Simulated scan of single mutants.
Amino acid sequence: MIIGLTGSIATGKSTVSRMLKQKGYPIVDADEISRLVVEPGSPVLESIAEAFGYLVLHPDGSLNREKLGSLIFNDEEKRKKLNGIIHPAVRREMIRQKEEWLEKGANTVVMDIPLLFESKLQSYVDKIIVVSATPAIQRERLIARNGYSADEADARINSQLPIAEKELGADAVVDNNGSLEETEHQLAKILNEWNAKL
């Protein structure tokens, strides 16, 4: 079984991903892969520099995420252009890692994909878990964790598909407004109901 794990900014998806890892489930992490494909010297990083200018690179040849982020944050065309370079490479590597786990004999593989719905990757997985929190809790966490102002936090939250919409596409929802124990308990129940063997 391939489980897709998703959520929105500051809903606690990474926390649930860590819980799954601790239980021994293999994780294919889209964020980790998106860092991997833009390592210095990679063809993807070269394409990004060609498309956006070499100013998006640090002197050591690594990607200057802040610089690139500021270029694309309010520019839909540039964001699409960047996604067109990065996404295909990330998808290829995600599929490669998933296949590798299955070949090693894994019964269940978790694909941790923050933008599962936005990128329309539902077909990559058999079941979807959405980690959910209220916008008020998301805002609180972003202010505490990232030092954002309330407006900055809201802008980040509103730039994503509403969590309520993601919940509609989920096979199961983990409500992560409460304690870690409550989250852990919900996760265990879902895995048990789905008979998600290691």
Rank of each mutant, 00 (worst) to 15 (best):
T6L: 03
G7R: 08
T11C: 11
G12H: 04
K13D: 01
T15A: 10
T15V: 13
M19G: 08
D29K: 02
E32T: 06
E32K: 00
L36W: 11
S42W: 02
P43Y: 12
L45G: 08
L45V: 09
E46L: 13
A49L: 13
A49S: 15
A51G: 15
G53M: 15
Y54P: 09
V56S: 13
V56M: 11
D60K: 01
N64G: 12
R65P: 06
G69P: 14
F73D: 14
D75V: 14
E77Y: 11
K81R: 15
N83H: 10
H87E: 09
V90H: 04
R92E: 11
E93Q: 04
M94C: 00
K98Q: 05
K98T: 08
W101F: 10
W101L: 05
W101C: 06
L102Y: 07
E103V: 09
N107A: 14
F117M: 08
E118C: 09
E118V: 06
D126P: 00
I128D: 06
I137P: 07
L142N: 12
A144P: 00
Y148L: 15
D151S: 15
E152V: 02
I157H: 10
Q160A: 09
V173Q: 03
S179W: 04
E181M: 02
E184I: 04
Q186L: 10
L187M: 06
A188I: 05
A188G: 13
N192L: 03
W194R: 11
A196S: 04
K197I: 14
